[in-house]
């Protein structure tokens, strides 16, 4: 009975492996403890297990509680990753670019005002994202202390994670599109290390996007 219940719970839950194993081990210990306490009180072993499982609660309800914990843990970890990785990628890309190219060349075509706005936004987006993610992490803890439920927190954190990954990705895509439309030679004249760094940056951003998407999947499961 206990084995079946824990296996069924395992099948329903999706989220970070170590936490999931930890939660399931704890649930199993609790069921074993309850069954042995009931057996000590005089129940036969099979009835004791059945009763322990019944006392633990209906699987769909219990699984929902556990799932929201897994979703929240994944979202919080994704936010911490974004907090470090997004500014780091931005700084490394800029340093690499300055090392190989120095200041941006003037180019043949004068840059329109809106282009400079897009470029400025793209320079700042990593820091704005880091600031907002930090606020979300601190705010999440405050909300948790005020008794806001894990399901709500997991959804909020998932939404912030998606926005925090989408913003720098969109920023970077818009500056590339803007550059291509204003003066495509600027893109073609990038030095190879800068092009390589850009590809690496996109690889990291895609990985972050996968993590962010899982926040939504886990909090909807």
């Amino acid at each position: 009975m206990i084995d079946e219940y824990v296996t069924a719970l395992d099948r329903r839950l999706r989220g970070p492996g170590p936490l999931k194993r930890d939660l399931l081990a704890e649930a199993r210990d609790s069921l074993d403890d309850a069954a042995s306490a009931l057996a000590d009180a005089g129940l036969d072993p099979a009835s004791a297990q059945r009763r322990a499982v019944a006392d633990f609660g209906p699987l769909p309800v219990i699984a929902r509680d556990y799932q929201s914990l897994l979703a929240l843990a994944h979202s919080a970890r994704t936010l911490r990753t974004v907090l470090v990785v997004v500014p780091l990628v931005h700084v490394l890309w800029e340093l690499n670019r300055r090392f190989w190219m120095g200041a941006w060349p003037d180019g043949d075509v004068p840059l329109p005002g809106w282009y400079l706005v897009v470029a400025r936004l793209n320079d700042w987006v990593a820091w704005v994202v880091a600031g907002l993610v930090l606020v979300a992490l601190v705010g999440g803890r405050v909300l948790a202390r005020r008794g806001v439920g894990t399901t709500t927190l997991a959804r909020l954190a998932g939404g912030v994670a998606v926005a925090a990954v989408a913003a720098p990705l969109l920023g970077s895509l818009s500056i590339i599109t803007a550059t291509a439309s204003v003066d495509v030679s600027r893109l073609l004249e990038l030095s190879p290390p800068v092009t390589l760094a850009t590809v690496a940056m996109y690889a990291v951003m895609v990985r972050l996007a996968v993590l962010a998407r899982r926040c939504l999947v886990f909090s909807a499961a």
């Binding site: 704890e26 633990f56 309800v61 509680d65 914990l69």
Partner: peptide, 12 residues
Amino acid sequence: LPTGTVYPALRR
């Protein structure tokens, strides 16, 4: 109360 609700509450 269902004992299974205690663990998620503790983690919360």
